[in-house]
């Protein structure tokens, strides 16, 4: 039996200033100020999430926004795949302070429950009433890419007909520790946010099609990446490149030197750097009906020099 094609039916990106639409996005010159999400939760989710952490709130808002933009109720058997690099880093820090000397030595039960790395995926499923596969991938820079790859493969294989795939990460203080944890330079903006895509095997009303998620070896990236782009690109359709936060200016220049007609969209200026910024970048590129057209390609590499690329064809714009 042939594999199904997988489409994107809705997308939502939540940025570090509470921005949910293209018109609300701002260019960040420095780390964004702390973001309070309680009101936004009530506005988007409809009910307060009293015991939820900031991390869970980010995921809840973006996933619910994505589902609202779908326009129809999502079925109960919608699988959920969440990528997160650092997961509940604030709650984990809080627990460390509480338990380790010279702290008082006892853990807050709420902080402990919230510190489980799969809490965001649980709330995404609970708010969506989804009783299906539910996975949380935590692999630093590629957390969202792997979550999307697993969702894409499960839909292609026919295990599920629809899925919600997203990425979410929160920032934390002190800044120096967060920079070290993420191996960022001091001049890089620390961001946070979430992005979700509703995927389906139904072509009707689709906004985009997932063409593939590929893991590439550092040794072959120079050959494999142009080959993959040529394979995905139809005729002379426009190509938008979304460069991930690990790529240097030289690496981006090198990526496009063979195809000068590629349009580079530096989405990180709106969300800052976080492990799952890819989810924000892709969702932001697809969440506007008049937005990006043609082939959208996200490229990033990890600390170890491995690369992952995501190819999506926008069917709007």
């Amino acid at each position: 039996m042939g594999k199904s094609r997988v489409y994107v039916h809705s997308a939502a990106a939540l940025g570090p200033t509470g921005d949910m639409r293209r018109t609300e996005r701002v260019s960040l010159a420095a780390d964004p100020p702390p973001l309070e999400l309680k009101e936004l939760v009530k506005q988007v989710v409809g009910v307060p999430l009293r015991q939820a952490s900031h991390f869970v709130e980010l995921a809840a808002i973006a996933s619910q926004l994505c589902l609202k933009r779908l326009g129809v109720p999502a079925p109960e058997d919608t699988a959920v795949y969440v990528g997160t690099g650092l997961a509940e880093v604030r709650k984990t820090h809080a627990l460390f302070q509480q338990v380790m000397p010279p702290g008082p030595g006892m853990a807050s039960p709420f902080d402990f429950i919230n510190a489980a790395n799969n809490m965001a995926a649980f709330y995404v499923a609970k708010l969506g009433n989804f009783r299906a596969r539910n996975l949380t991938v935590s692999q630093e820079e590629f957390s969202f890419e792997w979550a999307l790859q697993l969702a894409w493969e499960d839909l292609r294989a026919g295990d599920y007909r629809q899925a919600l795939a997203g990425g979410v990460d929160e920032n934390s203080q002190p800044r120096a520790q967060h920079l070290r944890r993420m191996a960022l330079r001091d001049d890089q903006v620390i961001g946070e946010g979430a992005g979700f895509l509703f995927l389906s095997v139904e072509p009707e009303r689709a906004r985009a099609e997932i063409l593939g998620v590929r893991h590439l070896d550092a040794q072959t990236i120079g050959i494999e990446l142009p080959r993959q782009l040529a394979d995905w690109r139809q005729d002379r359709e426009p190509v938008t490149l979304l460069p991930g936060f690990r790529l240097s200016a030289d690496e981006i220049k090198h990526l496009i030197h063979t195809s000068p007609d590629i349009d580079v969209q530096p989405y990180l200026q709106h969300c800052g750097c976080f492990h799952t910024a890819t989810a924000f970048g892709l969702a932001a590129a697809l969440d506007d009906p008049a937005g990006t057209s043609g082939l959208v390609v996200h490229v990033n590499r990890n600390r170890a020099g491995q690369w992952m690329i995501v190819g999506i064809r926008s069917l709007t714009g």
Binding site: L86, V89, T92, N118, N134, L135, S138, Q139, R181, D217
Partner: peptide, 28 residues
Amino acid sequence: ALRAPGYLTQEFAAQMGMQGPVMTLSTA
């Protein structure tokens, strides 16, 4: 500086010379 759950997975892969897909799942 508490690390990402996938940090040591990546370190272990590098230590063992593993070049294939590397992934950490955290579902309690």
